[in-house]
Design a protein around this nucleic acid. Structure first.
Lengths: 112, 112
DNA sequence: TCCTTAATTAAGAATATTCTTAATTATGCA
DNA sequence: TGCATAATTAAGAATATTCTTAATTAAGGA
């Protein structure tokens, strides 16, 4: 498997509803794997694999307490994802505004 | 293939560096498929397939002019992705602040 | 020590993704 | 009409993702 860049890992991690659901719940409180797994109709290993994807993207942190793992969300990757999206949104809107302006100018020149 | 929700389609579309590169360039100016394909070392069909993924996520719009297709970025899905990310970032930060506050309180109670 | 609980790792199946080359569609122009 | 150009669709290969069940690791408690 070709090593993926961070942003790709982050967006790929966010591309699954189960993983987004996990993050939603972790954004409200830290939890153990068991607590996180509970509402899903899938096996424990499946959850464990989802957690691995989230961890690889830096979106969660696991800390071991006895046989329990406490899961905590991390916001840095969310910041990174947000920065990418905002940058492109902003740039496109700039272009778009410039274009609108241009069209307006053209129209008023036509009217003369 | 199970029909995917919009947010999953958007994040999945953003999870590929080639597709992000395409969006970056389209955020600067609209372009034809050929112009977009040019700098990549991959075949035209591969680009066409990436465009299909972007289109399915609503991230681009194709309009036909003769045998050319003009590609334009669309910002609604970026807004949607951004909203999700911001919401979770905000919620986690709230929790985090509350936790910090709680720890501070506990510490000062201990000190007494 | 033995059993239970929490979680992960291993192996394998089903499906999805991402690329390739070849064929096809659609348009413009000599 | 016939050829060149732009792009897509089709088919297939390689690889990645997402799940399953079975086995394993690790800790706590009777």
């Amino acid at each position: 498997m070709a090593a993926k860049d961070t942003l790709s890992l982050i967006f790929a991690a966010l591309a699954d509803p189960t993983r987004r659901n996990i993050l939603t719940r972790l954004s409200q409180r830290a939890a153990t794997v068991g607590e996180i797994a509970e509402p899903f109709g899938i096996s424990a290993p499946a959850i464990s694999q989802h957690l691995k994807v989230l961890e690889r993207a830096g979106l969660i942190e696991r800390t071991a307490n006895a046989q329990w793992r406490t899961l905590k969300i991390r916001t840095e990757p969310l910041d990174e994802a947000s920065a990418w999206v905002e940058k492109h949104r902003r740039e496109w809107n700039l272009r778009f505004d410039a274009m609108e302006e241009h069209l307006k100018t053209m129209n008023s020149e036509e009217e003369q």
